[in-house]
């Protein structure tokens, strides 16, 4: 049972910023970030609660969630690893790091690999799948 957002979720402010009160549309992004911090993602009931409390159309709430890469409307893994794929990191090997995890099991299924490679891919796939366990 996902927790629902209470009014306190929206109107209570961070301890470090007692001077802030964010009613209305302008409080949407902070509320979504806060809800996500608590639950790992923004569930339907939470989104609806935020829309109601801030008096923002639900469609706008989803519009915002979909726009921002770091807002998730689906459950995420407990641990999200984000590896930089831009040039300074890619020339330092980040693409190797990226390839090694996610597509390892896909690779194992789709590409005819030598036996040793297959074994490694299967092993990595297992590691990945266990790490992918989601909190439903």
């Amino acid at each position: 049972m996902p927790p629902t957002a209470s009014n306190s979720l929206i109107h209570s402010t961070e301890a470090a910023q007692p001077h802030i009160n964010n009613p209305g549309h302008s409080g949407l992004l902070p509320a979504l970030l806060k809800a996500q911090k608590q639950n790992g993602y923004i569930s339907k009931p939470v989104a609806a609660e935020i829309a109601r409390a801030l008096q923002v159309p639900l469609a706008d709430v989803y519009g915002v969630i979909e726009f921002y890469a770091l807002l998730y409307s689906k459950p995420t893994a407990v641990r999200v690893i984000r590896i930089c794929g831009d040039p300074a990191c890619s020339i330092a090997g980040s693409h190797t790091a990226l390839k090694l995890c996610v597509p390892a099991w896909v690779l194992a299924l789709t590409k005819p690999l030598p036996m040793a490679g297959l074994w490694w891919s299967a092993r990595h796939a297992w590691v990945c799948v266990t790490r992918h366990q989601r909190r439903w």
């Binding site: 893994a77 999200v80 930089c84 330092a92 990226l98 996610v102």
Partner: peptide, 20 residues
Amino acid sequence: MVERSPCLGLCDQAPAAMVN
């Protein structure tokens, strides 16, 4: 869960990543 991310502003310590 692993994602490709755009530049994380840690280019001086490439390759960089964030875990949560």
